[in-house]
Structure formats: C-alpha cells, structure tokens
Design a protein around this nucleic acid. Structure first.
Lengths: 231, 231
DNA sequence: GGCTATCGCAACCCCCAGTTGCGATACGGT
DNA sequence: ACCGTATCGCAACTGGGGGTTGCGATAGCC
C-alpha cells in the first residue's frame, strides 16, 4: 500500500526527476488536471503483470531458482523491460513481497482470551498455509535474508504483526483472565512458534486443530504464570 | 531409495569407511577378494578438507552464494578435484551436512522434569547458536529444501532428535510429575518451537535465559494438562 | 495524426556450474 | 630406492542466467 511511486525507479527513462520538464506529473501532485506527462497506463499494466508473475514464480520455483527471464516470460514481457523498471532481481522480489504484506491477520477482541487466542492462532495458520504466507516464507526464510532489504521486509511483517497482536493479551490481563505480570510479547510468540515450527521444521500439516492446540497450550501456561506471570 | 547413498561416493577410489586415519595397513583385513585398493591416504585428506571448507562457506555466505570454486580454494584444492569426488554442488553440501548430524544434543535424565527440560532447552539453544546449528539451519531453511536429498537430511536431523528427546517426557509422566495422557511429542515440539522462532523469525538472541523461559512455559502448560494431559 | 515514452529485440559481458584431456605428483608396494 | 598407478592440478570449453546497451517498433495521449 505504501508504494505511491514505482518502487525502484533508478532508471533514466523512469526516474521521477523533479527538475525534468517531461515529468510534471509528480505522484505526490494531487491529480494534475493539466498534466502533460502521461503514458503511464501501459507501464502500470506491465508493472502489475510482472509483480504478479514474480509472486507466482516465487511460489513455484522458490527464491534461488527464480530467473528474471522466467518472470518476464510469465508476465508476457521482455527481460529488458523488467530491468528497466527494477534495478535487479532482489529489488523486484522485494517489491513483489511488499505488495503482499498488507495481508492482515485479523486481531480478535471477543472479550474472552480463550476465544481470542484461538482465533488468532487460526488466522495465523490460515495465512501460513495460504499462498501469501507461502510466498513470504519461501523468500524470507531463504538465503534472501542476507539481502538487507529482505530483512527489512521481514521485520515489517513479523514485528508489526506481533505488536498488533499484543493487545489481545493485555486486555486479558486487565480483565483478570491472566495473572498480572504476564508478558504479552512472550504469549504471542509462544502462540505463533509451534505453528511456524510445524511448517518450517517438521513439515507437518497445519490446520485449525493444530492452531487450537497451540492456543490451549499457551493459554494453560499463561493462566498458571508460566509466561511472565507472578515473580 | 531415491537417494541411494548419503555420502554419495560416486568415485571408485572413495574409501568406504576409514576406521582410523593412522591405520593405513588395515592388518585385520585378510587379503580381500583380490582388491589391491590403495592410495586412499591422499584422497581422505582432500575429502576432509573439502567437506570442512564447504561447511565454512555455508556458514559464511549461505547456500545460494556458495560456489564450488570458493569451496575448492578454501580447501586448497582445485575445482576439478571437487567434481571428481562429488557429482554436483548439492551432493557436496548434503555430504558435508551429513557429517554434522552426529552433533548430538545431550538427553538429560536427572529425575526431575523441571531440570531435564531446562537442560534440553539449553542444549538446543547452544546448538542453534553454534557453528553446527548455523550451517544446518542456513541450508535446511533455504531453497535447498526443494532438493529431495536435503529434505531427507532435514528429517534425519530433526525427527530423530525429537524422537530421542521424547523419553524425557515419558519418564516424567511415569514418575507422576506430569499428568497422564501428556503427549511427549507435543511437549518437545512446544519446547523447541520458541527457540527456533526466535532464531528464524524474530532474529532475537537465544541464550540460556531464553531456554529457561521456554522450559518454564512448556512445563507450566504440561503440568496443567495443556499438552494432551487430561481428556 | 503526430510526439514521445515505453517496449521488444538482439547482441553483448561476466560469473558460475559442470566437463574433458593432458600433464604433474604423491602414494604405496616391491 | 624405484616404479606403477591413482589421484590431483591445470587450462580450455560449453551452457545458462544476471545484467547492460543501442536501435528499431509500438502504443499511449494530446
């Protein structure tokens, strides 16, 4: 959502140079009625097609085996065109992934920790096993983590997600459902960890039942002060 | 047996199992069926050096960026020599990894679940943050998982490890420290999961304290029937 | 209908996987 | 000490993918 302009201009023909008379249509400019600059229509379609093709290739062959030529052909576009819009392979992948981080996992607030944690776990399980989670995990847990931009995307996704889930626990503590001193971050991490573990390590199927068991386990621990409660 | 041999000798002169580097004559071997096989001494040194170099490169640059030439130079050997002993890059990496699966995490039996789980978690944490764990994780959680042989190594490492840890829980149940019906596999997975989660997802440091907290959480859940105990 | 940005295309460079033939070397037996 | 042979070093090669460049073709918009 937060990519108003092409993610990786870096190209003379595409760069939004403010001093360039051929580029009065600045993205930040509110709908220039008399904008001489145009011809963005074609580019936008190409951009969308390439990004979608990149995600598909990612899910199909993974990060390492993804070839720019493959993405280009899948998008019905020439390799050169891809390189005109994106600096390199990694930039393209980061851009494709960035469009996917909007996939939110619903944060429940039913008034019951039990229900809340269960719903949270089920939402995460659904995402993990879905196409979006698959693509993100395929990249973020590959050698791509060595690319700084990839690591940043990882933080943007996981840290943000953890932070948004913490209130669920905080509210439960305030309601007296969990002992005071319970660490919200710890609870959320211990809820998510078994699901990731099954997907990444043991390669077991992750379904609603798995989610429920994870919720039960972390809830039991939290209720009895095993997650920061008490001392 | 899609992958016939983990070591993948693929080389006629590759020794089956060198019992001892200082035991070239092998006096216990009565002649053998007209097998004047010799000159294994040099090859064994090369093999060891290359395997060690591969692990080092793995830890340094990761799976995708690992080049055969890089490994060869690091081992003080020519690229051709590597290809004469290993079919391809993946075979080499699998072989290097296979030598590492012997790295055992001690399975404690102190008579106390509390202590046992704590020691188990600490052992895992130490392995995860050590060189061996780093190399294994770098590969097993990369695009390498798409290589069947890699997936097999993953199973060999993790499944076997989980299975060996289960008795710790089973004994605790028999001693009455944990409620009957407690699922050993579930306990072990929920013990390991938070540690992997922190290493792989949140990139937090994993130390003894982290291990202790994981042990406390899973122990609390298990004691109160949150991990299969009770109905 | 014309102007211009964008795209397709082909050719190119560089790096790395993997191969081959030949010459150099070190090991092990006699 | 010597010699045979297995192994290694070396250089040159193919093939594919990342990334670049110059030019011609085309599609969008005025």
């Amino acid at each position: 959502m937060s990519s108003p302009d092409p993610a990786a201009p870096a190209d003379p023909a595409d760069a939004p140079d403010p001093a360039n008379p051929a580029n009065p249509a600045d993205p930040a400019n509110p709908v220039g009625p008399s904008a001489p600059r145009a011809a963005v229509g074609r580019g936008e379609k190409v951009r969308t097609a390439v990004l979608a093709a990149a995600l598909a290739e990612l899910a199909d062959v993974g990060y390492a085996a993804l070839t720019v030529d493959g993405v280009a052909q899948r998008a019905g576009v020439h390799k050169t065109t891809v390189y005109r819009r994106w600096k390199d392979r990694d930039t393209l992948i980061v851009d494709a992934l960035t469009g996917q981080i909007a996939t939110d996992i619903p944060i429940p607030d039913t008034g019951s920790v039990d229900e809340d944690l269960r719903l949270l776990a089920r939402g995460l399980a659904a995402w993990l096993t879905g196409p979006s989670g698959g693509a993100v995990l395929a990249v973020l847990l590959s050698d791509a983590v060595r690319v700084p931009a990839m690591a940043e995307v990882r933080s943007r996704i996981f840290d943000d997600r953890l932070r948004r889930a913490e209130p669920v626990v905080r509210r439960a503590v305030e309601r007296g459902e969990l002992p005071p001193g319970t660490d919200p971050a710890e609870v959320v991490k211990n809820l998510a960890a078994p699901l990731y573990f099954r997907v990444l390590i043991t390669a077991e199927p992750v379904d609603a039942d798995t989610a429920d068991r994870a919720a039960t386990a972390v809830l039991t621990a939290a209720r009895h002060g095993g997650l920061g409660g008490l001392g």
